[in-house]
Every structure is written in C-alpha cells, then in structure tokens.
Design a protein around this nucleic acid. Structure first.
Lengths: 304, 304
DNA sequence: TTGAAAGCGCTAACAT
DNA sequence: ATGTTAGCGCTTTCAA
C-alpha cells in the first residue's frame, strides 16, 4: 500500500480510501492511485482488511450437495441478490454427509463472514442455532425452529396437491408416485394425504396408472426412460409430472412442479442482508414460497 | 484467546499451540485448553491467523458452473485429495459467464489463498497466467499455455475415438453426433476426424444412423428422450453413447465415455499441493487422463 | 487531503 | 511449558 501511495504521489490514507471505493476522493487522484495499483499489481489483502475493519464483506454459502441441481438454482438466486449488499459469496459443501457438512460450516464460520446461508442443510438444528449465535444465518429449503434464523422454504404439500389437482383436471384418476431414495418426510406425507400409491422403483410403476408424479430431479429422468422403455408413450399413455428442477428439463420438455429454487435463494439472501444491516436483533422471518407448475410436453388429458 | 488462556490456567502462547494442533503439548493441558475454548465458544479467527502466519490454509476453487455436474464431480476429486495438504476448500463461481468468472477469481485471490484450482475455466489465458504469478495455480479440464500452471485434462479426441471404435466393433457403420451448444473445439475436431455426421438438434438425428454419440450430459438426456419419442427403441434400433457424466446416468443406465472427472480433480489437487510445498519454482505439470467407456444399457450390436 | 497513532487477533522467534 | 516482543496489512479516528 505504501508503494502504491509513493508511486501515485499521495498518502497511504488516500490509497486506503480509494481502494474502498470512497466517494470523497477527487477523480484526478483516484485515477492516479488506481493506475499505480494496476502497475504494481497491488490488491488489497482481505485478511488484513477483515481484521482491521471488523467486517469481511463475505457471505458464506453452505451447499448441501454440489451434485444437486436444486442447490445450484438456489445459489443463482443468492448471487442475484448479493450485489445489493456489497458482499461476495464463498461456497463450501458437506458433499451430502452431515458430519462433513458440520465441518464445512465451521470452516465458514472461522472466516468471520458477515453472514451465512445454509442451502438444504442436513446438519442438526442445534448446530444451526449455535452458528446463529455468532453471526446472521439464513436457511433455504428447510424449516428450522430457532429464534434467530430466517427460513425460506417451499411448500411440498402444496406442490403435490397442485400437481394432483392439475392431473385430475386432465381426467386422470389413477396416479402413482415414484419416490426413490431419502426424501423430506413432509413430501412423503403430502403424497399419502393426496391418496397416491407410492412405489420405490421406476420399474414398479403400476400398469393401471395413467399419470405419474416423480419426486426429485434424477428420479424424473429415471421415470421417463423407464416408461418409454416399457413401451408406454408419454404423454399419450401416461402423463408425467416431476417435483423438482430436473437437469435438462427444458430440453427434455418435462412438466415440473416446485417452488422456484432461485426465488428461494433470492428471498434468503434478502432476509440475510436485512439482518446484517439491522443486527441479529430483528424478528426471524419465515417465508413460504408457493409452488409453480410448469406444464410442458409430458402431460396431457387422459385417453378415453 | 486471552480469556481461554485464563480459564484454562495457562499462557496465551500455549493456547495458540493447542489451537494449531501442535504435537508438543501435554495431553493434560491440551484438554484443559480445548475444554475452556468449548465453554467459551472460542474459535480461532482465520483472518488474524492468516495475516500473522503468512499462509491461510485455504485453497480457492473456481467452478465454471455450479449447474454442471462435471464440475461437481471434479470438486469431489479435489475434496478427496485436499486432506493430504491440510487445506480447506472454498468455492467461488462465475456462473458460466467469463466476465463474472474473472471477478470471482479476483475475489478468491484477495483472500490470499495458499493455492487456486480452476475447474473448466472460461477466462482468458492471460488472467490465469497473471493469477499464477501471485500464487500456485492448477487447472482442470482445460489446457493452458503457461510456464507456471499445472494442467490436468481429459483427452477428448481419444474419448470420441474410443466411442467410435467401440460402436464399430458392435457393427455400427452410420454414426451420428449430437452436439448442442458451445463445446470445446477440440471435441468438435475429434468428431470430424472420426468421420461422424454432426447435427445440432435432437430432432435432426438422421433416420439412417444406427448409433448416436451425444456430446454433453444434458444433451444425452435430450437425445435419449428424442429417440424414444420418435419411436426408435434404444438400444434395439439405435445405440447411444454419451460423452460426459450425465446426471442420473446410473439410474438411466446410459453408456458413457469420458475422462473420469473425479480423477481429474484428484490429480489437479495433488499437483497443486506439491507446488504449494515446493514453491512456484517447480516445472509445470501437464497430465492427460485417458477416457473410460462405461458400457451400460444403451448400446448393443447393430441389428441385421 | 494528509499524517500520526492505535489496534484488529493472531503467529513466530526467542530467551527463560 | 511460559512470557515477551515484534509484526502481519490494513482501517479508523483525530487533528491539522
């Protein structure tokens, strides 16, 4: 910094102001400083800055699983909203394992971020609450009972209900639910409540069903290929709705129903930024995002 | 730190040693310190530590696109290898746009990481080289001409050749290539060299083709559904090979060919850790990972 | 716009 | 195992 100041013929303090983008520096000197910095390849040291300033300008993002396209979509929303707060996003992940996720969360907290967003976390609620004691925390995609974290969630029951409603409107009466792997219990309950017969394998889909609701992105792909391979045309013989944002949903033209993931991200980041500004004191927000059904090429009226 | 020391009845220096996991502290005192830290909710401040120690223990990972399952797979490899170097991974992303990717890279560099891994970067080579001037850099999935970065890449030409070879061995003579969206030119050239007819839309696949090579993960899904929807059975009528790691490839049982992405990650991290140890001086490594063909349910001998 | 001074929380080197 | 002493690169405050 001293070198830059010397080269630009100004004081160290002025360089500091310029690098922080302070408005009260004349354009003449400002440009001289920026030029000198560029020539010298100077970049402010975030560690030192964070230490001195007491804030880092970092928002830590804990993604449950990098392989999950839903997490990526939520991150998009976070990144869209982040510029409003002048923060940079840094991502860490537990790779689907709760234990590693705890460690990853600790790593983030060690950085003293200005705030943390947990995306689809699988860590115990106690861990989340403890984290929230030290810095602002927002959670997307899971409801956490805590007096100090903001939660933004989709409404699984509403999504299932919405899908079933739509399929019934198309005349479908026998609707099967394909549910592979671990799913939030709320989803499972919603399916039961809607009176769906649930199967755990794509090959077990009952022949009598004229419509299928697949839970999850990859499950949807599996269902589609299994149906087609079994010689059942989609949507002529069977309609398919996928809960989630299937990778390639657009190119595959699959009808989907879900809370828009990016919207979850946007709202979570908005809540977090507010909390960063207003201090941890604020009332915790609990936002529920309604599902959206994107009708594409895999749904049609039932054949008579 | 002072509070912890007081509470544990030891010196501040000892607390520092314990928190860094130094081996030369008796188990008695060590546990007293850890206990006191836990009770007080003390966590070492990485900013301060990084500033004082001159190293941060952070390896920055720049992922080209969180939506790309290939990136996720590479990250898995990086994370597998990282513990060997006692570093934590922090991810940033340019969300597919080169300009943002540059900014994301700058954000990472500002943290003064011990090293940086670029996964499938789309930034100009000059940016990469400049970054490498300041700290160890490894690149996965792209070959960069620079005297100081380690590159680990797959061999696209070999992958295409391998797939074609295998399809020919199955008796296929008319092989089409489905290539949607922007692809590395090396891949494109490899396809031409193999004499494939390339089409840009899943619906344009020629009826004469008995085999299809789809470039890219989602492209593969699109190809599969397009074929099935067109009433062409897979693999009875048409064989399908996908270049990449399709999401849900296992459940969809799609035959794939590609350099194992996780392996790329592992090798990139290994190279980076070595470079971190040995200084920037070391000869840059250029590793090429051979493709692997995973024959699953979408390929079969041609029908006579 | 400048200069000086204090300090952020920690590590490292040293002598004890 | 302990104290002590510097100092990492920056921000902040204050007076000039």
């Amino acid at each position: 910094m001293e070198d830059v100041a010397a080269r630009a013929g100004v004081s160290r303090a002025l360089v500091s102001l310029v690098m922080r983008g302070s408005p009260k520096v004349g354009r003449e000197r400002r440009e001289a400083v920026l030029e000198a910095a560029r020539e010298l390849g100077y970049r402010p040291n975030m560690m030192a800055r964070g230490l001195a300033a007491g804030r880092t300008g970092i928002v830590g993002v804990l993604l449950a699983d990098l392989h999950d396209p839903w997490c990526a979509a939520v991150h998009d929303g976070l990144a869209d909203e982040a510029p409003r707060g002048d923060v940079r996003l840094l991502v860490s992940t537990g790779r689907g394992r709760p234990a590693r996720e705890s460690a990853a969360l600790d790593d983030l907290l060690d950085l003293r971020p200005d705030g943390v967003v947990l995306v689809g976390p699988r860590v115990p609620a106690a861990d989340i609450d403890r984290a929230a004691a030290g810095c602002p925390v927002a959670v997307a995609g899971r409801s956490v009972r805590s007096g100090r974290v903001d939660c933004v969630t989709g409404d699984d029951a509403a999504a299932v209900a919405h899908a079933v409603e739509q399929l019934k409107a198309l005349g479908h009466r026998v609707i099967a639910c394909l549910d592979v792997g671990p799913r939030p219990s709320s989803l499972r309950r919603a399916c039961e409540a809607a009176g769906l017969t649930t199967v755990a394998g794509a090959d077990e889909l009952p022949a009598s069903a004229t419509a299928v609701l697949a839970l999850g992105d990859t499950t949807g792909t599996a269902a589609l290929t299994a149906l087609l391979r079994a010689g059942r045309r989609v949507p002529e013989d069977v309609s398919l709705v996928v809960h989630g944002d299937p990778p390639g949903a657009l190119s595959a033209q699959v009808t989907t129903v879900a809370a828009p993931a990016a919207e979850l991200g946007r709202l979570a980041m908005a809540a977090l930024l507010d909390r960063i500004r207003d201090g941890v004191s604020a009332e915790p927000r609990r936002v529920t995002v309604p599902p959206r059904l994107d009708e594409r090429a895999t749904t049609a009226p039932v054949r008579r």
